[in-house]
């Protein structure tokens, strides 16, 4: 099985406007794929369709060879697909470690009775979640902020915490929605290294990104969208010299 996710002829309209128009592509197992395009090209809409936050009008998506048609948005993480968000979605009432533990929610088998009565099973899984989350924080080299709350840490760290939270469930496919947005140069470089280190662990990655430098440096393959349609696909060097892409970005 060489495709981790395959997206076939996805279409989605809002009112009369086609936000995503007959888009197809796939991500190979162990690949870093970038999805780029100008603002309003439909990238995030496509992301939200993949993660089932939006319903599609037509088309199909299969993950590791199986259609995800019958799954609800909250069931995808169990299949091995997890995501981050364009606007940071950290929970301010939880500290960094707890935020990451939230990503481990489905891996914990303790039920509500275990929780209400604080039974050994609850404690066992709490410990396990804590250990795994801490391990991920250390992997991303941000374990020094585990006790801090989201409003006490710099923006660049928040992005990394979001990534940690998406990683803790040990996904096979990681979806990153504009991970470099709002980051300065050194933070972006750090992110680039982080993405490679995650990829080295065998995680396939699909990312939406505006930062061309990051995209050209880290992705194996790039899909370009404009006005809802896919206009080009190929390795970064090909995309850089593609006329369609230039036209979409810079006009004629």
């Amino acid at each position: 099985m060489d495709k981790i996710i395959s997206i076939d002829s996805i279409t989605k309209s809002f009112g009369g406007i086609k936000a995503v128009d007959n888009v197809s592509f796939f991500v190979k197992n162990g690949e870093i794929k970038a999805l780029i395009g100008p603002n309003g090209a439909g990238k995030t809409t496509l992301f939200n369709i993949i993660t089932k936050l939006y319903t599609k009008d037509s088309g199909s998506i299969s993950f590791m060879g199986n259609s995800i048609e019958k799954y609800k948005s909250y069931e995808l993480i169990k299949l091995g697909m997890s995501r981050t968000f364009q606007n940071i979605q950290l929970i301010n009432d939880l500290n960094v470690l707890e935020n990451v533990m939230l990503g481990y929610h489905i891996n914990m088998k303790s039920n509500v009775l275990d929780a209400f009565l604080s039974l050994p099973k609850n404690k066992k899984y709490e410990k396990e979640a804590e250990k795994t989350s801490y391990y991920i924080l250390r992997f991303l080299k941000i374990d020094n902020i585990e006790k801090k709350y989201p409003n006490e840490i710099p923006f660049g760290y928040k992005r990394l915490v979001e990534i940690a939270r998406a990683l803790v469930s040990k996904p096979k496919l990681l979806l990153l929605d504009e991970p470099a947005a709002g980051l300065n140069e050194s933070e972006t470089n750090r992110l680039l290294k982080t993405i490679f280190r995650i990829w080295e662990q065998g995680v396939s990655i699909l990312l939406i990104e505006h930062d061309m430098n990051l995209v050209m440096n880290c992705s194996h393959s790039v899909v370009v969208m404009d006005e809802g349609r896919k206009i080009a696909e190929g390795p970064p060097s090909y995309i850089q010299n593609n006329d369609e892409v230039k036209r979409a970005y810079f006009g004629k």
Binding site: Y74, Q89, L90, M101, L102, H105, S118
Partner: peptide, 28 residues
């Protein structure tokens, strides 16, 4: 006890970031 468990974290997520909660596998 409930609040200090995985369910407590889930409810805090539902309270402030409902859409994100789905992504963590929470049947909101």
């Amino acid at each position: 006890n409930l609040v200090n468990s995985r369910f407590g974290r889930a409810y805090k997520a539902i309270k402030s970031k409902e859409n994100a909660a789905y992504a963590f596998g929470i049947n909101v």
